[in-house]
Structures are given as C-alpha cells and as structure tokens.
C-alpha cells in the first residue's frame, strides 16, 4: 500500500502571537516550529496503516527550505520518503499551494505508482483555508472527505468516521482516495533513537516550487483587539472556596 501525507510547517505560538514589523508574518524569532496538529495525526495514521497493511509512507510539504526539519521529524516516527517543494518562504494562497502539490504528486505517481490513500490535515493551524486538500483531490480526480477521526482500509475501500456532535457519520470511499483528518484520530508517537538517526541520514527530495498566484492575496496580518478584562481575585488557597461558591450562586449554578 502506497500512502502519502501532506504536511505544513507552522510556528508553535505560546500565549501571545507577535507579528513582524511589516505585518506579513508571525514573529518567529523566539518560537519553535512544528507540523500542524491535524497533520501530525495524519502522519501517525499513515504509519499505523503501513504497520497493518505493509507498503510505504511518503511525506510531502511545500514551504521554505527549513521545512526539511518537519519532514525529517516525520521520517523519525516512521515515514519512508520525504519530498520538499521549496518556496522563498512567502505566503502562498491555497490555489497556488494545491496546484504545486498536485503537480508534484502526479509526477511521483507517474514514476512509482498511484498512492492508494493520501492524507491531509483538515485545516492548517495558521492560515486555516480549509481547501488545499479538496483542490488537490479534484486535480487528481480522487474522492475526499474531511473531518475524519477514524480510518480503516478493507477490500479496496477506506471507511472513514466523522463526528457531528449528535451523530457519527461513516463514509466509504473507493481507493485511490483522500481523507482530511482531525486531531484525536490517534495519539501520535514520539520518535525513537533509531528513528532519529534514520531521519538524520534520510534523503529529502527537494525541488523548487514557483507560484502561479490565485485570486486571494494576503495583504497583512493583525491581532484582534483584545477585550480588556480586569481579573477579580477571589482569594488565595482553600480559604477562597466560600467566595467561589458565592459566585456559583450569583451565576445561578447551584
């Protein structure tokens, strides 16, 4: 079984997001970078499917040269191959991103065979456009469903579970197919020491990517106006309990 996961390198912000002076990006000087959370789970899910069905996992990203770090992380937890579409680090719109990824996937499939299942994250943590996976699916002519929190492959189909709050929906897509998964589908593993060593030596197939910009152009980022709240300190330690329960009564909770 040939499996592909598309991931995105994103900063890991703490309690506050600071912007660069030109407001074109998050000021990441003091931040680490990570794989977008839904996609971290997509990588884990692909590795689990490989463990059950055999085959190989390829991980692919479009991003700056530094995104190699995220690909190597995926290799350290069990991915076999890594492909990087190198950009100059600027913000790509979803149409351009999807077109570049789809073209690279089609190339890889022409060379080594069709991917039975392509996994993407439901939406990226940073830009949250909710569309790159769907656009790639349309270009490749594959079915795709999103919001997936459970997967199983059998008899040439992937069965995929999605929660709606009041129900669980099950979809059954013929392979080759795509799924957009959400965090919670699994608990991603940590890399092992042999995994880290393998990742260090792994070959990352890099190729430059050039954008054909789409119709949505980012002008600048801004921080939403913070609603200034003053915090009422009800007390320190267990002695604060009566004040807390007074609050419960005030809010009509008792």
């Amino acid at each position: 079984m040939r499996l592909l996961v598309c991931v995105k390198r994103v900063p890991a912000p703490g309690a506050r997001i600071n912007l660069t002076e030109d407001a074109q990006a998050i000021d990441a000087r003091h931040l680490s970078f990570t794989v977008s959370p839904h996609e971290e789970c997509a990588v884990e899910e692909a590795i689990r499917l490989k463990e059950i069905h055999g085959g190989s996992v390829t991980v692919m990203t479009l991003g700056p040269a530094e995104a190699e770090e995220q690909l190597r992380y995926a290799v350290s937890v069990g991915a076999d191959q890594a492909a990087l579409l190198v950009t100059n680090g600027s913000d790509w719109d979803p149409q351009a991103t999807a077109a570049a990824l789809a073209a690279r996937i089609a190339e890889a499939e022409a060379a080594d065979g069709v991917f039975d299942l392509i996994l993407v994250g439901n939406e990226s943590a940073d830009s949250g456009g909710y569309q790159v996976g769907v656009r790639v699916a349309h270009t490749l002519g594959r079915p795709i469903v999103g919001g997936i929190k459970g997967l199983a492959i059998e008899d040439g189909f992937v069965s995929a579970r999605r929660e709606t709050g009041s129900a669980v929906e099950v979809y059954r897509l013929p392979l080759p197919a795509m799924v957009a998964v959400k965090e919670g589908i699994n608990l991603p593993r940590y890399p092992t020491l042999p995994g880290r060593l393998k990742a260090k030596k792994a070959e990352v197939a890099s190729a430059p990517a050039s954008a054909n910009p789409g119709g949505l152009v980012m002008n600048r980022l801004l921080t939403p106006a913070e609603q200034k709240t003053t915090t009422t300190i009800l007390g320190r330690g267990p002695e604060a309990a009566p004040a807390v329960v007074d609050l419960f009564e005030e809010l009509g909770l008792l």
């Binding site: 949250g128 600048r220 980022l221 801004l222």
Partner: peptide, 9 residues
C-alpha cells in the same frame, strides 16, 4: 487565522 487569535486582511 489561528482559530480566531489572528486576523488576515
């Protein structure tokens, strides 16, 4: 963006 903690123009 970022689930509502950042805005984009």
């Amino acid at each position: 963006r970022w689930g509502g903690s950042l805005l984009e123009e």
